[in-house]
Design a protein around this nucleic acid. Structure first.
Lengths: 340, 340
DNA sequence: TATATTTGATTAAACGTTTAAGCAAATTGA
DNA sequence: TCAATTTGCTTAAACGTTTAATCAAATATA
């Protein structure tokens, strides 16, 4: 069964292929008679005509494809954002292609190349460390893109960010105000700016409240050995002379790994240890204690990303925008004030 | 900055565009001289030539795009499978486009249409209820596809399935052998075959072991009201005259909802209630008791799906294959034998 | 040496669209 | 009534590839 083309429709309707194209694309400015419109519509309908996107793209230089690069689509944070982006993009007539970088620069560049080869109209990117060159090159090729979740200071591009510093400061202050003195931040070993901001918010809050920030205050975790590092780190901490009385996890994966370990250690939450986690995930709900957590505005991130990108696609010369959305701390049992 | 085309390469190398095409596609059968090959390669390299996929697709009728329809990419079961499929497909030169149906027929058909319009080479599909017509139409259009996770008996197509009946029988028998007499199956209200098989395995096992299967034995949950239904159902069950001593969840989402409720009810697991869940998810790991669960062969499902589809794409006349992979029961604390 | 074959390249058509340009008929304006 | 304009439609080029067909030169065969 051969695909039906615009030519077949033209033949059946008894008009030229140009007319068919004009009608089917609703080009009202190009004066088509009422009855040809009807004839064409009817023929197209009867033949069940569907336009060929390859041909369309070739001619118009538009694919209506948006590439989305996340760290890992299996991470609920990204899969939720991906769904929102997909919906929003569909509304605007785009199809989304998702790729996972695994925080790996080679994979990341591979994805970028793939999207270029597929002539995506634009990209929504959670960049990996060290991708500056690659992205600057991308800019020179005039490929529109916007950052989500994170950004690279050396790359001047649109971005959707959250108030990483402020929210982290707020979480820390919340713990301090509830009487915690020995707070540990669990963070990745990284140079990624948004994560450094979270750390900075933490240390500034400690300092502001005259609490010491020592070698034990920050537990640095290698993203490729989360479970092992968390395991070893917590074992050390809880065997040390100054046992922590609060812990703040800066990502959902760190939180899950950490909570698993805390269960094993049999720590009493919130009595002996207050806990706050970044992000939300289904997993938190099965933890024995309702968790305090930082909720990111996922819907906002997704929809603004698409809007920003769409604007950029339709007008390449738009000025760079950096939009900052607010994450919120939701306090629950795990970090409640203990009355002795 | 204008995109460089094959024409520019031809010009620079001082040969015809045909020669460039032959060289760049490694068409060795079409006798090209060693030095033209070099000239072309060099020119392409220097100009940083990248082929235009739209043009390529238009000419070859191949897009090297695979469409993947899952119920919900934010469900870890599907997001893990999606990653595997993406990797495997990339190896074979395909790009994967993912869409979520939300078990909604209209969305499902929308996705099918989208993939047809984008002239995907083939589809990997977790079909929704009532999609028979739509998929038979798809077959008539010669679009190759393979089913994963589930299948529709009325649609004769390739599929990757798991041993739903057997594993469910095995789980039930396991519970019975550990002395449980009042087992409840938590399942969706559905006509989807793979889920009915799970139910059938359960009821057959009960019958085989002379246990009654009554109105209380199966808790039917509406997929659009999981939390509410589970909540009400469990409240009833645990207030009834015959309180269950075991529960088998037939999906990860049902398990998470159920476990949340069990926590609230303060049920002692495994002493008062044995629990087995289908699928694996990070969330299980934060539950207070290590959970017995059914592990699906995700890697196998993903890779075979791609292989099957790729074969079908390259040879449309291949006979239909239905491949059945084995899921395995992993027993843990939550369903252990209690010695009184 | 004349003919047949092989080698290495090119020409040109085709894939299915979009759209500027052109043209004839109908309508308007004076 | 005739030129100017508007209306409705068509022609044809272009987008960037692939590939069958062709061709000339070089080589092999007799």
């Amino acid at each position: 069964m051969k695909k039906v083309s615009i030519k077949d429709v033209a033949l059946k309707a008894g008009v030229s292929i140009a007319s068919v194209s004009y009608v089917l694309n609703n080009k009202i400015d190009s004066r088509i008679g009422k009855d040809t419109v009807d004839k064409v519509r009817k023929a197209a309908e009867e033949l069940n005509y569907r336009p060929n996107n390859a041909a369309k793209s070739l001619k118009t230089q538009r694919t209506h494809i948006i590439g989305l690069i996340v760290a890992d689509i299996a991470n609920p944070y990204f899969s939720q954002i991906a769904r929102i982006i997909e919906n929003e993009a569909n509304k605007k007539g785009y199809t989304v292609i998702i790729g996972s970088s695994d925080e790996n620069k080679e994979k990341f560049e591979g994805l970028i190349n793939m999207f270029c080869d597929r002539q995506a109209d634009g990209l929504i990117i959670a960049p990996v460390e060290g991708a500056e060159d690659c992205l600057q090159k991308l800019q020179r090729q005039n490929m529109p893109f916007v950052f989500i979740d994170r950004y690279l200071p050396q790359v001047l591009a649109d971005s959707i960010q959250i108030n990483n510093y402020d929210i982290s400061y707020e979480v820390t202050e919340h713990l301090i105000q509830n009487g915690r003195k020995n707070i540990v931040l669990v963070a990745y070993t990284t140079t990624l700016h948004h994560l450094l901001q979270r750390t900075q918010g933490f240390t500034d809050a400690l300092q502001q409240h005259s609490l010491e920030c020592n070698a034990q205050s920050i537990l640095s975790i290698d993203k490729d050995a989360i479970d092992a590092d968390v395991d070893a780190g917590f074992t050390n901490l809880f065997n040390s002379s100054t046992v922590p009385d609060a812990v703040f996890f800066t990502s959902n994966k760190l939180a899950v790994a950490g909570l698993k370990k805390l269960m094993k250690l049999g720590i009493d939450i919130p009595k002996d240890l207050a806990v706050v986690a970044f992000d939300e995930t289904e997993a938190y709900e099965l933890f024995s204690v309702p968790l305090s957590f930082v909720r990111q505005p996922l819907a906002g991130i997704g929809t603004t990303a698409v809007t920003l990108l769409h604007n950029k696609i339709t007008d390449h010369l738009l000025p760079v925008q950096n939009i900052i959305l607010e994450a919120e701390l939701h306090v629950s049992r795990s970090s409640e004030l203990i009355i002795n």
